[in-house]
Structures are given as C-alpha cells and as structure tokens.
Nucleic acid binder design. Structure first.
Lengths: 203, 203
DNA sequence: ATTAATACCTAGTAGGTACTCAGTAAGCAG
DNA sequence: CTGCTTACTGAGTACCTACTAGGTATTAAT
C-alpha cells in the first residue's frame, strides 16, 4: 500500500512544450501581480503541475522570471522586424531607410493588440527599479539599449538624438499606462499619433 | 512566573506620533518592494514594534496602504500650493494666473528632490493596474482628477486640452522612470525642461 | 491615589513561501 | 523485451504570511 495508482490524469509533456506553457502562464500572472506577488504554486496550478514538477523545469523562481523576459525579447525583436518588412539585424541601422517615427508607430500598433504583455513590462519596469530585484540588471541594460537604438535613428547631433529618444520612450511608456488604466476611454494608437505629431514636428 | 518584566526597552509613543512613523517607514518600504512585496513584519521592525502592535494602529495591511496614499496626497497638494505661492484651493483655477507649464515645472522641481516618493508612486501606479489591487480605485480616480485639473489650465478646446494634459502626464511619468533607473546620468529637471519646450511650443 | 483609557505585548491560528529529496512511471533506443 | 533517460510526484523542511485573543503596563484625568 505504497501509493495509489489513481493518478496520471496529468499529461506528461516534452520539455520544450512544457516550458512554453510555463512561460505563457507566468507571463499572464506576472502581468497581474508582479514578480513579488507571483507564487510558484499558482504557476504550477496554471500548468496542471505540482510545484516540484515546475521547479524541475525552471530551477528557481528567479530563473523563471529571466526565462520569461528572454522569451519576450526574442519574440518582440522578431515580430518587429517582420512588421517593418526588414531583416532582423537591419532594423536598427539608419541606412535601412526606416525612420524613428515609423519604428515607433510599429511598436505602438503592436502593443495596442497585446495589453497583457504591455502590462507585464509596465509592472516589472517599476518593480525592478529596486536594486535587489532579480530583473534590475535586465531592465537597466534594456533601457540603455533601447535609447541607443532609437537615438541611432533620430536626426541631429549626439546630444539632441539621445534627448529625442528619451522623450519618445517616456511618452510611449506614459501613454501606455494611461491606456491600461482606462482602455475604454483611451485609444493607444490615436494618443500616440497625436503625441508624435508634437514630438516630431520641427524635426 | 507569568512573564519576565525584562521588557520595555521599546518606547511607548502617543498614537499620532507612532502613526506618523509607521507611515514614513511604510512609504520607504513600498517604494522598494511594492505593496505585494511589503510585509507587516518589516514595517513593525522598522518602527521597533511587534506586528500586533503595528496592527493596533492600522488594523489591516490594506488600511495601511490607504493611509500612506492619503497622507501623500495631503502633503503634496499643500506643498505644491506653497511652492506656487497661491492658496491651496486656488491652484487649479485658470484665473489664478498660473500656466500649465508653471505647474509642471513646480511639480518636476519638487519630485527631483524626493526620488523615494516618486518611486513609491511609480511602483504603485503599475502594480495597481490590476483590478484586485487595494489601490486600484485610488489610482483610477487620481488619474481622472489629475487629467481634469491639468486640462483646466491648458489652452484650446475641450478635446485639445485633455490631449495635451495626457501627453504632459505621460511625459513626466516616463521621464521620471528613466531618471530613477539611472539618476547619475539623467537630470530630471533638464530632461523635463527640454521636453516641455517641445510639448508647449506652438501653444 | 484611583480610575479609565490605551499603547503595546505574548501566544497562537491557519495558511502560504520557495525549495529539497528520493522515488516512480512514461517514453524511447537498442 | 531490456535498459536508460527524464518528466513528474509525494512527502517533508524550515520559514514567513496577515491576523486574533486576551492580557499587561503606562499614561492621563479625576
């Protein structure tokens, strides 16, 4: 009478597929509660798994977060390149003939269709301001990279370019939060388009 | 032999003073970890109190957060009026002769001097996007009010005014996050001033 | 000096946290 | 059919979570 053989309602998935599911579920939960509010139990439940079963795939909670962010980054850069109809490695080169304004429009358009993902980043971006947060370094690098890439597409001198890039990022982030808080009465694409008008006129 | 009378290293404070201390400590901790990451134990430790001692003053964790936010709002509106040298109830009336740009400048100037508080709001603003968050309603109201007040100071028609107000708020929030992530290389006041130049030229 | 109010305590409840260990069974290669 | 790999489980560890009940000791009012 060791253990009842009643079990095995749960599916046994190949590692890659299970991992995909885990990341998907975690993405949703982090968007709702942040990393500090996330529990491994909830993730496991969402995958119809036990907690040790989950840990078998991801090791630790911190690792799980890193996996989610890396996956997002990969998907994001790929779909952005697709949307702009440009090879992945050429999106951020000025000579590809793509303007800063076009890139921003593409970004906003896609974000408007995936509020959950936008919220994930909004929440983690704020949470990770604290030095001890497991995604602190990630978001620090990310901000630096984003600014550098956008600046490379902007006109003007070194200083002016980075200033514009910063303003563009700030405006997008800020409008996104307003939109997430009240999606019914705010249209993200419209808001951005009218803001872009102000930011980009006068080159 | 009931209980040793060794205790009473801890101070016994009048309720108002203890409450002040609790709110101050909580403000710092929420800024670092968010509400989901906050523990009553940590707050109690920060006040040199036991957890039940803390609960005697605030009742529940949710109450504590509300207390912090209400306190911040009170202090904020008061000091803003002071800074603009205008009676508290007249800051948001267009005929007081104060422009939108002046109000924004005053806001940014003060925020530049209290990064902890700015972070508190940045973190809670993102966390509270989730409907179940105890500050969800608070931040929804706050966004509505802020937009209405700023819009009342903006020029132009109904629609244009709210659009500008939204852009101004978005830009301030966004720049603040960039600044918090890298205070060494970003000056908040400068960043805002150059952004304001873009936002406000052309009325 | 006595009483009343109250700031704060100890002890405990019921439940959650991430994570470990040792094993079981499903799937696949030979 | 055998044997190996591995996805996954049950049980357990050590600890933290908000919160309650009931009491003690300090202060302030009388």
């Amino acid at each position: 009478m060791k253990t009842q053989p009643i079990r095995r309602e749960r599916a046994r998935l190949p590692a890659a597929e299970r991992r995909r599911q885990i990341i998907e579920v975690t993405t949703r939960l982090v968007a709702e509660r942040g990393f500090w509010g996330l529990s491994m139990q909830d993730v496991a439940d969402g995958c119809v798994l036990t907690v040790p079963g989950l840990l078998h795939h991801v090791g630790t909670k911190d690792n799980l977060l890193v996996a989610v962010l890396e996956h997002r980054d990969e998907v994001d850069t790929r779909t952005l390149a697709e949307e702009l109809a440009v090879p992945v490695d050429r999106v951020w080169t000025p000579d590809a003939g793509i303007t800063l304004r076009q890139v921003c429009r593409a970004l906003v358009r896609r974000n408007a269709g995936q509020p959950e993902i936008v919220r994930l980043f909004a929440v983690l971006e704020a949470e990770s301001l604290a030095p001890g947060h497991p995604a602190h370094g990630y978001f620090q690098d990310r901000q630096r990279n984003t600014l550098k890439m956008l600046a490379s597409l902007a006109p003007g001198g070194e200083v002016a370019r980075f200033r514009l890039a910063g303003q563009v990022v700030a405006m997008m982030d800020g409008l996104q939060i307003q939109w997430l808080r009240d999606p019914a009465s705010i249209d993200l694409v419209d808001s951005w388009e009218s803001a872009a008008e102000r930011l980009f006129t006068g080159l």
